Simulated assay, not measured.
Amino acid sequence: MTNRDRLLGLTVVLLWGLNFLAIRAGLDQFPPFFFVALRFLVIAVPVVLFVPRPNVPLRWLLLYGTGFGVLQFAFLFWAMSSGMPTGLASLVLQASAPMTVVLGALLLGERVNRRQVVGIVVAVGGMVTIGWDRFAHAGLLPLLLTLCGAFGWALGNIGNKQARADSPMRLMLWMTVVPPLPMLALSAVIEGPTAGWEALGSAFDADGLPALAGLVYIVLLGTIVGTGLWTRLMSRYPASTVAPLSLLVPVVGIAASWVALHEQPTVTALCGGVVVVGGCLYGMTRPRASAGPAPAPATVSPPTPAPARV
């Protein structure tokens, strides 16, 4: 991965880490399933009207949209509305990174080198440390729901990778067309046919402005910019190279929740964050080639003359 693409990956980390604060603001106003539908609907409508569909197999577009858009956020928003702390949600969701690497190896035959394995194991160890330290802040159900969301993200990564889009941005935009209808149907059945729309109608008063600001952030920065850059990276590099970057998201998410929501982390959680960063950096960087004697120049033998034709 080039230094420029590493910088783009770290930009995604920052945007997605802060995205959890926007999600929390939105969930204070909207029912979770309706909020999932709404965040994609406001992008999907202009996309269908003005953006040409990418030339990719439909099955991979559907897998990308279902995994990344439907499963990930349906389970994540459900978990956070059921009591999952914002910072802890940003951590547990990154279980998608090792899940993506495993799925990439099993389904796509991608090779994982020893340095990447060590880096992921170290980073996951840091995540486990933080999760164990903060487990008391969340019940078992929210934790399991968030892990289901992480698996959905991993499936979406595989669909993204297999689509092999010549225009990653168009692929990302058309991914947003998949979630709205199934999520609106799920919201109507579980949350009630009018609950979400009533919440949207009351969001334009003073109390609802934070939720609308959160929606704008999620749509513009979290989805269009963040997911667009992520899709580009996934299209250019193996899943095992890009996915570990997401392990840095909880460091930003926990820090932002500490400042904005007063979810103060313990010393153990902070130490776990340092381990996560260290593991990611180790897995992403290549070892320097050891200096050694320069290879001897190859000796070129003169060509053997071809036999004469009679």
Rank of each mutant, 00 (worst) to 15 (best):
M234T: 10
G214L: 05
W258N: 05
R59F: 06
L248F: 09
T268M: 14
P244E: 10
V13W: 03
L18F: 15
A25L: 02
V48L: 14
L18H: 02
G283I: 11
P250S: 00
P210T: 10
V178Y: 10
S202H: 12
C271W: 13
R236I: 09
G278N: 06
P193E: 03
Q264G: 00
A256P: 03
V277F: 03
S187I: 08
L18C: 10
D205Y: 02
L248V: 13
T11A: 13
L173C: 06
L21R: 05
L49G: 05
R232P: 00
G69K: 02
F50Y: 09
L171H: 10
V118N: 00
G196Q: 03
L212M: 12
R24S: 12
P31Y: 01
L233M: 05
A213N: 07
D5Q: 08
L186Q: 07
L15G: 03
F20Q: 04
A105D: 00
I23A: 11
G126W: 06
V274P: 04
V70M: 07
A188K: 01
A213R: 09
L143P: 05
F33V: 15
P52M: 13
A37I: 08
G159L: 01
D133I: 07
R39E: 01
L144G: 04
M284Q: 15
P305A: 12
G192V: 02
V121E: 01
R134F: 04
G196N: 08
M183F: 09
M169A: 10
L93Y: 04
P180I: 07
P265I: 10
M183C: 13
L221C: 05
W132Y: 14
L38W: 04
G278F: 12
C148M: 11
F68D: 01
P180S: 00
R286Y: 07
T299L: 13
A203V: 00
T2Y: 02
V177E: 11
V102Q: 08
A138M: 12
T66K: 11
L58S: 15
G214T: 02
Y237N: 05
L145S: 02
V267Y: 10
V259Y: 11
L15K: 06
T299E: 13
G222N: 01
G149N: 03
Q94K: 14
R288I: 11
T304S: 09
T299D: 09
L248G: 07
H262I: 00
P98T: 12
P307E: 12
G109V: 02
I130K: 08
G152F: 04
D28P: 00
G139A: 10
R111K: 14
R114F: 14
L10T: 00
G208R: 07
F135P: 09
T176G: 10
H262C: 00
I158F: 08
L76C: 03
V251E: 03
A150R: 00
A289W: 14
L14V: 15
L173D: 11
P182V: 03
P305F: 12
W153H: 03
L108D: 12
G69Q: 14
G26Q: 04
V310A: 14
